[in-house]
Design a protein around this nucleic acid. Structure first.
Lengths: 152, 152
DNA sequence: GACTATTAGTTACGATCGTAACTATCGATT
DNA sequence: AATCGATAGTTACGATCGTAACTAATAGTC
């Protein structure tokens, strides 16, 4: 069964990781250079700015697949920049509702311009058809991964 | 132009990263538990085992998008396990040709079984059509990313 | 209302990472 | 053949990460 051997080139985790790494690094270079933002910080800012509402740290972690300690540190850092402020929950004081300040929203808008430019660049590289297929496939994967693990 | 606003949900780097994280973590849990392998180690083993020839550390890094220090450490670790050995280049002693030992090949085959199982699981989750579209899109992205950066 | 379990978020600490500096080797130039 | 630049790989070190333990608050149970 030599014809049935394992092909690393078609192994989805390997492929996904490689592509994600390429794409993320090139974009990270842009916002790192111009805003001294780390990746967790950008991802936190993006989640808050994009959903346009206050979120808890846990929500941000779930939305962006970041470990809660990563979120915690990113929130602290953004708070120090005064791009984000905490609002305590009156009913349940364990929660902290996080929201962007005016400066934070401003920064988000600027970074968004970078992101749009990058997305357009990517689109021009691979074409509309491949881009849509890609996004559709990624959605399918995420949808499936959220379900509980199959009983081994 | 509110209709033209930035959509994080369709931003490829964000999406790619999320999906890659999900998929990789679940697979890593398997080989970590059974073989105490780290991710760089698995990736190094996979590259060598899959290409079925000796490679230099630099080649491995280029193939799997790993930083050279990561490769260096993974190679050391696999060498200590006696899954890999170095062969020095007679003509240019800067190069070290790395290849799997019999034990390394054996381990690769076993891990390959895990990987095939996981790939099959993923395939059953999203279907042949989405999987092919996904792999095609990923190939397109990588192809494009390898070209030099556009003059900013 | 005391006890237990659960959840949100922080932090201490050991592990891992990447930048930069290093060694060793080679090719090209003079 | 001495010098300079480039390349393969290693390593020192500061930065970042995630596990586990922690604090604080709440909900449920008796």
């Amino acid at each position: 069964m030599a014809e049935n051997r394992f092909e690393l080139e078609n192994f989805l985790p390997y492929r996904l990781n490689r592509a994600a790494e390429f794409v993320a690094l090139r974009f990270a270079a842009q916002y790192k250079a111009r805003y001294q933002l780390t990746r967790p910080e950008w991802r936190t800012l993006a989640a808050l700015g994009s959903l346009r509402r206050s979120m808890t740290a846990t929500e941000i972690g779930a939305h962006s697949t970041m470990h809660k300690t990563k979120v915690s540190r990113a929130v602290h850092s953004l708070e120090r920049r005064r791009w984000l402020r905490r609002e305590e929950d009156g009913r349940d004081r364990r929660f902290e509702h996080l929201e962007l300040t005016a400066a934070g929203k401003q920064a988000y808008e600027e970074l968004t311009q970078l992101a749009r430019g990058y997305q357009a660049e990517l689109l021009s590289m691979i074409g509309t058809r491949d881009m849509e297929a890609l996004l559709k496939g990624l959605r399918a994967i995420e949808q499936a991964m959220k379900k509980p693990v199959t009983p081994d």
